[in-house]
Lab assay of single mutants.
Amino acid sequence: TQSIHIEKSDTAADTYGFSLSSVEEDGIRRLYVNSVKETGLASKKGLKAGDEILEINNRAADALNSSMLKDFLSQPSLGLLVRT
């Protein structure tokens, strides 16, 4: 696993530069990185398409609903625990 911390203040970007997809496997919801913008903040921090997001801001990914995800992604900083 890899811990990634991203700050939007690093650039004038209003997004982190990646998209997520939610997949249900064996009754457990998993979050995967769908795509990463080549010039985006997430790419600079090493996030890659296909990575599994285990935690966002110290909250287990399978416990997050879509409104919580939207809220986290609109925050000025983001902490991710990722399995590559």
Rank of each mutant, 00 (worst) to 15 (best):
T1I: 14
T1R: 06
T1D: 12
T1G: 05
T1Q: 10
T1F: 11
Q2N: 13
Q2C: 09
Q2L: 13
Q2W: 13
S3Y: 15
S3W: 15
S3E: 15
S3R: 15
I4C: 00
I4G: 03
I4V: 05
I4P: 04
H5A: 04
H5N: 07
H5R: 07
H5G: 03
H5T: 09
H5Q: 05
H5P: 01
I6P: 04
E7P: 03
E7L: 06
E7C: 14
E7F: 07
K8G: 03
K8E: 01
K8A: 05
S9G: 14
S9Q: 10
S9K: 13
D10V: 05
T11I: 07
A12M: 11
A12W: 07
A13T: 14
A13D: 15
D14N: 06
T15F: 08
T15E: 14
Y16V: 04
Y16G: 00
G17S: 02
G17C: 02
G17M: 03
G17H: 05
F18M: 06
F18G: 02
F18S: 06
S19F: 06
S19Y: 04
S19P: 05
L20V: 14
L20Q: 15
S21A: 13
S21E: 11
S22I: 12
S22D: 08
S22M: 11
S22P: 09
S22C: 12
V23N: 08
E24C: 12
E24S: 09
E24V: 14
E25D: 10
E25A: 08
E25C: 11
E25W: 02
E25N: 09
E25S: 10
D26S: 11
D26I: 06
D26N: 14
G27E: 02
G27W: 00
I28W: 06
I28R: 14
I28E: 08
R29Y: 04
R29V: 12
R30D: 01
L31P: 05
L31A: 01
L31V: 10
L31K: 00
L31E: 02
Y32H: 05
Y32L: 08
Y32D: 01
V33Y: 01
V33L: 01
V33H: 00
V33P: 00
S35D: 13
S35C: 08
S35K: 10
S35P: 00
V36M: 02
V36W: 04
V36Y: 01
V36A: 03
K37T: 13
K37A: 14
K37Q: 14
E38Y: 03
E38P: 13
E38H: 10
E38N: 06
E38S: 11
E38T: 10
T39R: 12
T39A: 13
G40F: 09
G40W: 00
G40C: 06
G40D: 00
L41C: 09
A42C: 08
S43W: 15
S43A: 15
S43Y: 15
S43D: 13
S43R: 10
K44F: 04
K44W: 04
G46S: 01
G46A: 02
G46W: 04
G46H: 08
L47W: 03
L47I: 12
L47R: 01
K48G: 01
K48V: 07
K48M: 09
K48F: 00
A49W: 05
G50N: 04
D51M: 15
D51F: 04
D51E: 01
D51L: 02
E52F: 02
E52I: 03
E52L: 03
I53R: 01
L54G: 01
L54P: 01
L54F: 00
E55V: 04
E55K: 12
I56G: 02
I56R: 01
N57R: 01
N58L: 01
R59V: 15
A60T: 08
A61E: 03
A61L: 11
D62N: 13
D62F: 06
D62T: 12
A63P: 02
N65M: 04
N65Q: 08
S66K: 13
S66C: 13
M68A: 11
M68S: 07
L69F: 11
K70N: 09
D71I: 09
F72I: 14
F72P: 02
F72R: 03
F72S: 08
F72H: 12
S74R: 14
S74C: 10
S74G: 09
Q75K: 15
Q75W: 08
Q75F: 05
P76A: 11
P76K: 11
P76E: 15
S77C: 12
S77W: 03
S77D: 07
S77H: 05
L78N: 07
L78P: 03
L78C: 04
L78Y: 06
L78D: 05
G79N: 15
L80F: 05
L80P: 03
L80D: 04
L80M: 13
L80E: 04
L81Y: 05
V82P: 05
V82D: 05
R83E: 15
T84A: 07
